[in-house]
């Protein structure tokens, strides 16, 4: 049943143009990041002809710093915008009620959405990484493979948490506005909590900073262990609560 429902999610993304939007976003930033890193110093120099600016020569690290910065900003935004209404809008449009009235298990219905979203992000992140790596190697032949790949794993764990949070917010809200509001409030709270050193290590948001740290200073799994484990636990909790909430809700 879950596979059949995932198939529908894929079809919906394909038919509504969401799939092409998310693919273009991932691919665009994966190709642009190494190119931007390469040309940016030259660009800065050419703009200010009167002042002498000393810009260190770009390296593969700049390419991947740019890559993760883009993933954590633009790609993050697109992912949230495309996924946030997945449950809430179906409740609002009453299609959720229609499908559930056919005997489809509510838990499977939510999990199909979660698995589809997580698979899509995983596949696209992987493709984007390899594309970015490919162009980085062309522009910076000494590009390291292992460090950005492991940073990419951190990004994926971070996105698992973000997708879980969208599923939770969407299950709780009755329309896309409510779901978006719930997501933003939780995200702001997590952002504030990130300022406290004692909590930071358990905060999934900290993963996005660690990705860049690893690129500049090297891989330190020991420093990311607490954050990784707490992110996975929180993701499972959010999806479980989302399923529970949806199970106990009255549909139209």
């Amino acid at each position: 049943m879950v596979l059949k429902l995932i198939k529908k999610e894929f079809y919906e993304f394909k038919k509504t143009g969401k799939l092409i939007a998310i693919i273009i976003t991932f691919l665009l930033f994966s190709i642009m990041s190494p190119i931007t890193a390469k040309v940016m110093p030259e660009l800065i120099k050419s703009i200010s002809s009167e002042i002498t600016i000393i810009v260190p020569p770009p390296t593969w690290k700049d390419a991947f710093l740019q890559f993760f910065k883009n993933l954590n900003q633009m790609v993050f935004l697109i992912v949230v915008l495309l996924f946030i209404g997945s449950v809430a809008e179906e409740k609002n449009r009453k299609t959720a009620g229609l499908i559930v009235s056919k005997g489809v298990d509510r838990k499977k219905w939510i999990l199909a959405k979660f698995f589809f979203q997580i698979s899509l992000v995983f596949i696209l992140t992987l493709i984007a990484f390899f594309l970015c790596y490919y162009y980085s190697v062309i522009l910076f032949p000494d590009t390291n493979f292992e460090i950005p790949l492991q940073s990419c794993i951190l990004f994926f764990i971070y996105m698992t948490f973000i997708v879980s949070l969208t599923i939770f917010s969407s299950s709780l809200g009755n329309n896309i506005i409510q779901a978006g509001g719930i997501f933003i409030v939780i995200f702001i709270i997590l952002g504030i909590l990130n300022m406290f050193p004692s909590i930071k290590n358990y905060n999934p948001i900290y993963l996005s900073s660690l990705e860049n740290q690893w690129i500049t200073t090297g891989i330190k799994w020991s420093s990311a262990l607490k954050t990784t484990i707490s992110s996975i636990i929180l993701s499972i909790l959010l999806v479980s609560i989302g399923v529970y909430l949806f199970n106990s809700q009255e549909l139209e």
Binding site: Y11, E12, K15, K94, G97, S101, K102
Partner: peptide
């Protein structure tokens, strides 16, 4: 529920489907 057919008062479906595609999806899940 597998033996019950239901028509809601305001029927809303997935707008991106054609009628045939929508029924094919319903046939698939039931």
């Amino acid at each position: 529920l597998r033996k019950v057919g239901f028509l809601p008062d305001v029927p809303n479906f997935y707008n991106f489907f054609t009628a045939r595609e929508f029924l094919s999806f319903i046939a698939d899940i039931t």
